[in-house]
Design a protein around this nucleic acid. Structure first.
Lengths: 211, 211
DNA sequence: GTCTATACAGTGATAGAC
DNA sequence: GTCTATCACTGTATAGAC
């Protein structure tokens, strides 16, 4: 449509806009139909271009998958960091972490974030290596927060096991979580935190609210 | 190779044997490469027949997937029921449930059982409906055991949430569990139970050992 | 019960016009 | 930057011989 605007509008506005559109559309389709069953024609169709044009933006379908996953992880990390910054006590930060994960999964970047965990195995090794660092930051954040929770003597069990229990449980939430309001997310987060600390939801809630 | 044996050997021995072989081989391949990336030629190759012959046993590749999942769920249920029968106290039964799930995932029927959770979404609706009942029995067993744990005042949080935390965490264990001995499974089960009850592994262990 | 041969419908990706 | 046309290839599934 728009042939040219100012130089920088073309270089970082329009161009990146289309790339972004493709990533978002692909994320949507990858999530609902899976990577393999989604064809490049489906994706092209969703953004109103033809299949050949996709390869102007991405070298291959796998390359597009990598972009989707990169976007999913990055956006998720941003949300998590932003939510954590708002809180200070170990329990409220723990809740924030879980809440942010739900937000990332079911909110704006939702499709991409879910694809990240679902289709990771479809990535070629070099792509996996490129994303490894970003992936690692997740693990570090969880470990930090769970350790703080342990220092506060709220968490008793092994923090690594706790992480290995919580993260897949969160990722799996897409199968049973329907309502997607902020209030529901907060509630589910209370429930999950309480679940893994083996206390009632009410107790955890008042615990994290107490300064 | 063996052209013919007795009549019943052919009818329920050889025939079912080949079908079984296909299911096992398919399970293996579906697990490592995923359903979509596995071709019928790969599967045929693995059991030493040609691709066309698969369709003598199964109407379609999807039909074969259904058979794999049916086998995975059934075998898993059998293991769980068998392990539960051996125990009586709520905590020891809880441990048995988790242990059995690990056994099912990583033991004999392992590939098929993992495929059950991984590729469920690839099933057509009618197949899903056929398997629904079997699937439901899982949920009932978990609910029963967790309720017993609640009655015993060992579990405090919501039992449904607890199930939703534990089951995906168990299914995800294939990504980090390497060693697959009975001893390791028992240990991991202790660790996971302890994790969700927020007590130390040692404490849970002695709890379930106390008559 | 298994093989060979093949149909037939896509699939990811490329080339070149506009 | 997008389209059209097309390629090489792989996928499932079928038909008929043995």
């Amino acid at each position: 449509m728009a042939k040219q605007k100012t130089a920088n509008a073309v270089e970082k506005g329009e161009k990146k806009g289309s790339k972004r559109k493709l990533i978002v559309a692909a994320a949507q389709l990858f999530k609902t139909s899976g990577y393999d069953k989604t064809t490049v024609r489906d994706i092209a169709n969703a953004v109103g271009i033809t299949s050949g044009s996709i390869f102007y933006y991405f070298d291959s379908k796998e390359d597009l998958l990598e972009a989707v996953i990169l976007y999913g992880i990055s956006a998720g990390l941003e949300i998590i960091v932003a939510e954590l910054e708002k809180k200070s006590t170990p329990t409220s930060r723990f809740h924030a972490l879980v809440y942010a994960h739900l937000l990332a999964l079911h909110g704006e970047p939702g499709n991409a974030h879910e694809v990240s965990s679902r289709e990771w195995s479809r990535l070629p090794n070099d792509a996996r290596a490129r994303l490894k660092g970003l992936h690692e930051r997740y693990r570090v954040i969880w470990t930090q927060e769970l350790n703080a929770l342990k220092d506060a003597e709220v968490l008793v069990g092994d923090e690594e096991m706790c992480r290995r229990i919580m993260v897949p449980a969160l990722n799996w939430s897409s199968t049973w979580l329907n309502s997607k309001t902020k209030k529901v997310f907060e509630d589910i987060a209370d429930n999950m935190c309480a679940g893994v600390l083996n206390i009632s939801k009410q107790e955890f809630h008042s615990m994290r609210k107490a300064a």
